[in-house]
């Protein structure tokens, strides 16, 4: 049991907090709207090695764990950096697992992404980073395929200004077939859930800070609005949500790094023992999405009319808090999927 970051992770956190703040912070996110991608920041990111840090060393990567990537993802979310690092990291790891990770992908000069939904009639819909990624890894029936048709460059206009695009998988190469294809894809999707959850924690963290700062500065009726108990209580529930989401996404990353799957992880809701990666990854995304949604909701409200104004940053966080999670699916459907995992084991196990 150790709930602290390792010394290396502390360093990682500091380095990337600085990097995102100076190279890809909310101002850059604002400037990158509506496409949701800042190519110059991405060029700078390549210099840090971040795009390949999560690849095994054998694939030319940095050998970082999901836990390490989660630390970076939280900082990315805290700055709402307009960079598809989560998608690229997850797709790169999946490609490496099938022996198909090219050098440009490992470096990041070629962006790769994961289609979250299987292809339908040769098209993957609403692929995150689909507008900017040259490579898309997708599930097509029983086949895991790689399509390298190049980035369209144009994003579908959307709530969170994400670089979303529909992508054709015409002419894609087959990486894996059969149950192995599904298993590899599911693992990658759970990694995406885990890291997206971590990024949402970052969104919640900054949104809370923005709300608290504003409540200390803004005066009405002769005092800071943060002195009104109604305002205090809106904010006081939030640190528990943000910290809880961080712990849950870190636990999911830990389970993923420890290779705890249905064969050796525990799924026992009756005694609240869960160590199975897939279950925890699903839980982390649902909860972090909810925590970020509630946090941005309340923080925006505390800003009064200014919260609604384009000029203030909180609205950038508000829209992304919703979009980053919903790009996968309705959380209620995610919950039903989690229930299938929770209820698959017999009750006697409890």
């Amino acid at each position: 049991m150790d709930l602290a970051l390792t010394a290396d992770q502390e360093t990682l956190r500091e380095v990337f907090a600085d990097f995102f703040a100076s190279e890809a912070g909310p101002d850059r996110a604002r400037a990158a709207e509506p496409s949701g991608f800042d190519s110059r920041s991405w060029e700078r990111l390549l210099e840090t090695g971040a795009p390949g840090m999560g690849l095994p060393e054998s694939a030319g990567g940095g050998g970082a764990s999901l836990g390490d990537l989660g630390v970076v993802a939280e900082e990315l979310g805290a700055a709402i950096a307009p960079l598809p690092l989560v998608e690229h990291a997850v797709a790169g790891r999946l490609l490496a697992a099938t022996g198909a990770c090219s050098e440009p992908v490992a470096e990041g000069s070629d962006i790769a992404t994961l289609a979250l939904r299987p292809a339908r009639d040769g098209i993957c819909h609403l692929v995150p980073a689909g507008a900017v990624a040259r490579h898309v890894v997708a599930l097509d029936g029983d086949r895991l395929v790689l399509s390298s048709s190049g980035a369209p460059g144009v994003a579908l206009g959307n709530h969170g200004c994400l670089p979303l695009a529909h992508r054709s998988i015409d002419g894609a190469t087959v990486l894996l077939e059969g149950p192995g294809a599904h298993a590899a894809f599911d693992r990658a999707l759970d990694e995406w859930r885990t890291l997206t959850a971590a990024a949402l924690v970052g969104i919640g963290r900054t949104a809370l800070d923005l709300g608290v700062e504003y409540a200390k500065e803004r005066h009405q009726f002769g005092k800071p609005i943060g002195a009104f108990q109604a305002v205090q209580h809106l904010l006081a529930d939030l640190p528990g949500l943000v910290d809880g989401a961080r712990l849950l996404s870190a636990k999911a990353a830990w389970a993923g790094d420890s290779d705890l799957d249905s064969s050796n992880g525990v799924i026992d809701p009756g005694s609240n023992d869960i160590t199975d990666f897939a279950t925890l990854a699903g839980m982390a995304l649902v909860f972090a999405g909810e925590a970020a949604t509630t946090t941005t909701d309340r923080s925006l409200h505390v800003h009064g009319g200014y919260g609604f104004a384009e000029e203030y940053d909180i609205q950038l966080f508000y829209r992304r808090a919703r979009a980053w999670a919903l790009v996968l699916d309705d959380p209620a459907r995610e919950c039903r999927r989690i229930a299938d995992l929770l209820l698959a084991t017999s009750e006697d196990a409890a």
């Binding site: 809880g244 712990l247 609240n272 989690i338």
Partner: peptide, 20 residues
């Protein structure tokens, strides 16, 4: 089923906050 999952998630989060 959705609510069972939501409760199980809340139970994990409560446990983690307590554990912290």
């Amino acid at each position: 089923r959705e609510r069972i999952a939501r409760t199980a998630i809340a139970n994990q989060v409560s446990q983690l906050l307590t554990l912290r």
